[in-house]
Simulated scan of single mutants.
Amino acid sequence: MTGDHETIDHADVRAATGRTAGHTRPVTVAPDDIVEGLHLAYEFTQHTGSFKARGAINFTTAHLAAGTMPSAGVVIASGGNAGLACAWAADRCSVPATVFLPETAPEVKVARLRSLGATVHLVGKEYAEAFEASRDFAARTGALLSHAYDNPYIAAGAGTLMEEIHAALPELDTVVVAVGGGGLFSGVAAAAHAHGVRVVAVEPENSRALHAAIAAGHPVDVTVDSVAADSLGARQVSREAVRWAGLADCVPVLVPDEEIVAARRLLWDDRRLAVEHAAATAYAAVRTGAYPVGDGERVCVVLCGANTDPGDLVTRASAPTGG
């Protein structure tokens, strides 16, 4: 990989594995006691609460090693997991980070980004305005423009998760991942394809950028209206995700919002895992039978993040009553 708009393969994921070693937390893989043959990858315990840390640290360290990291550092438009991961990786590598958010961004997100050392700018009312401001900032200052998912270093870094899952479960048949913009899917698919592992790509019914792109043969804009839109709300999937959907053994699956909510609740009630709706989206595919696990099939579901408000999980019905 020599540029920021090239495709990735397993060699890029392996290179990312070397760069991210010592920076990211190795994923814990635990058996599920509800579905036979199922395992859960606890990636929500990663730095900044999601898999995004993998891509961010790979992006940052790769540019540092190549001598292509400018003195102005990195800039990104994201108030979500990608922005947090970018700020964390930059801070870890002593690189300046600038994050653009809409003026409507919650103060808690702004405060968390600043606690990670990022300079935060609030611009406009919508993400698109913040994104354009980040592009202008990069052009004006020379800062390196990062992206939430559509970048080969970001995608290859995400793929290091699959390398760890395969090391823990060498006989794995299938990995199940939620899909938003396609960065996690692309990286995981590149590694899974090399290991002969099927990839189940799960999207909410009303946030189906990958499904629409597969049908069209290229990325297209979609309407986003899902409980998981905060993480899986990309209006267009990356070209690399479309490419890997065609190359890998890929099974695209859709799940309704009510099943995503139920799966998230089940993970809390059964395991006391407070994950975000994106993580529950992947679990819902197996729990509901949208992806039916075959007899003897060995499956791992990626619980990709936990940047969520757990308040709606702790109710009278599920809270402990004594002891």
Rank of each mutant, 00 (worst) to 15 (best):
G3D: 11
G3Y: 01
V13T: 15
T20E: 14
P26W: 04
V27I: 08
T28G: 00
V29F: 01
A30Q: 11
A30Y: 06
D32Y: 04
H39R: 08
L40Y: 03
L40V: 04
H47N: 08
F51Q: 12
N58A: 06
L64H: 05
A65S: 11
A66C: 06
A72D: 10
G73A: 06
V74T: 08
A85E: 05
D91Y: 00
D91W: 00
S94M: 02
T98V: 14
P102L: 02
E103K: 13
A105R: 07
P106E: 08
L113M: 08
T119F: 00
A128Q: 09
A128D: 15
A130S: 15
F137H: 15
F137K: 06
A138P: 10
A138I: 09
G142Q: 05
A143L: 12
L145M: 15
H147K: 06
A148H: 13
A155T: 15
A156V: 07
L161W: 02
E164T: 13
I165S: 03
A167H: 13
A168G: 07
A168I: 12
D173M: 06
V175Q: 03
V177W: 03
A178R: 01
G183N: 10
V188H: 03
A190P: 00
A190I: 02
A194H: 11
R198D: 06
V200E: 07
P204S: 01
N206M: 09
V224K: 03
V227P: 12
D230F: 08
D230R: 09
S231L: 00
G233Y: 08
W244D: 01
V251A: 02
L254D: 01
D257N: 02
E258H: 15
R264F: 02
L266E: 15
D269E: 15
R272Y: 07
L273A: 11
A274F: 08
V275G: 03
E276D: 12
H277P: 00
A279M: 04
V286M: 02
A290T: 11
C300G: 04
A306R: 10
N307G: 09
D309E: 08
P310R: 10
G311C: 00
T321A: 12
